[in-house]
Amino acid sequence: MTMTLVQGTHEITVDGVRQVFHVAGAGPVCLVHSGGPGIEWRYLRLPALEEHLTMVYLEPIGTGSSGRLDDPRDYRIDTYARFVHGVVEHLDVPSVFLLGHSHGGFVVQRYALDHPGRVAGAILYSTSPVTGEEFWNDAMARIAAFPERLPHRPAAAEIPAAFQRALAAQDDEAYTTSLREILPAYFADYWTREQDLEPLRAALRAWIDPMRGEEPAPFDVRGELRSLVVPVLIISGVHDFFGGTRWARLAQELIPGSRLAVLEESGHMGHLEQPEEFTRVIAGFAVAGADVSAGRTAR
């Protein structure tokens, strides 16, 4: 069933805190949660998908025009998921597709596990079912090896040191500056499309999440995913420094009936590196899921 939502920017209150989101496109509803945590949503604007889906882009709590939490310890995955639920409830549709990128993928997994009846399908994009020491050691090893992977790009040699500066950032300005410095690490080869991507880089903004995406215990839903009953599409780029396809393949093994789409020429930003393939696999997944949902409703 196709729902009609009012296009444009919207603001609601969840637990007394402002939550802003943007609606664009037509078709089944797909709520989008960007990554970081703390990165402004616009880098994940998906105009091509708006031709197939009604895209609902969150400004995650603590970023952009959305409100800030009084207690920095509340920036937890379950908190982000609670704000997602507030928007889903406000939209008043039977179910929604969810697209979570990177840290947003953690949020989507948590939400789909807690509220499967509200999820038409989950799209886990450049994410993982687990973090912790092994996850981060793997990512840091890939960052250290980044200059070796692109020896013909002199600027690649600067990425490992810039990444350490990003990890050490203590305020929003420093974090934003560092994120712009390390942006090439998120691509298979940023410099092949540097002219097109520089405006994105210049406009990128970020806000410090005091928890830095981690919590007292690392994110780990491996023990729960075997019971996940919603349709799941997993998208992963071969050159993603967050493990390549390692963690995506683990998620596929754990989630019954899940589908994995591997982007051979992408890093962490497949929607910008292979946009046609990215759009095609998501549109196909959503159309199939919407047909199944409509059939259930008809019965």
Rank of each mutant, 00 (worst) to 15 (best):
V108Y: 11
Q109W: 08
Q109P: 00
Y111D: 01
A112H: 02
L113Y: 09
D114F: 07
D114P: 02
H115R: 10
H115I: 10
P116G: 09
G117W: 02
G117P: 09
R118V: 06
A120F: 01
G121E: 02
G121S: 01
A122E: 02
Y125T: 05
T127K: 07
S128Y: 05
S128G: 01
P129T: 04
T131S: 12
T131L: 11
T131N: 02
G132N: 15
F135L: 07
F135V: 09
W136S: 04
A139I: 04
R142K: 15
R142W: 08
I143V: 15
A144Q: 10
F146N: 01
P147L: 01
P147K: 08
R149T: 11
L150T: 08
H152R: 07
R153W: 12
P154N: 04
A156Y: 05
E158Q: 13
E158F: 08
I159Q: 03
P160D: 00
P160A: 14
A161V: 14
A161E: 14
A161S: 12
A161W: 14
A162F: 10
Q164E: 14
Q164C: 11
A168E: 15
A169K: 08
Q170A: 06
Q170Y: 06
D171K: 11
D171H: 04
D172E: 05
D172V: 01
D172A: 15
T176I: 13
T177Y: 10
R180S: 07
E181G: 01
E181I: 08
I182Q: 12
Y186G: 00
Y186S: 03
A188F: 03
A188T: 06
D189T: 14
Y190T: 07
Y190L: 05
W191N: 06
E194V: 11
E194N: 13
Q195I: 12
P199Q: 08
L200F: 10
R201V: 10
R201I: 11
A202C: 05
A202R: 15
A202L: 15
A203L: 12
A203T: 03
A203W: 04
A203C: 00
L204E: 03
L204H: 05
L204K: 05
R205V: 02
W207F: 10
W207T: 14
I208Q: 01
M211Q: 14
M211W: 06
M211C: 04
G213E: 00
G213C: 09
E214S: 11
E214D: 10
E215P: 08
P216A: 09
P216I: 13
A217N: 08
P218Q: 13
F219Q: 04
D220Q: 03
R222W: 13
G223R: 03
E224M: 05
E224V: 05
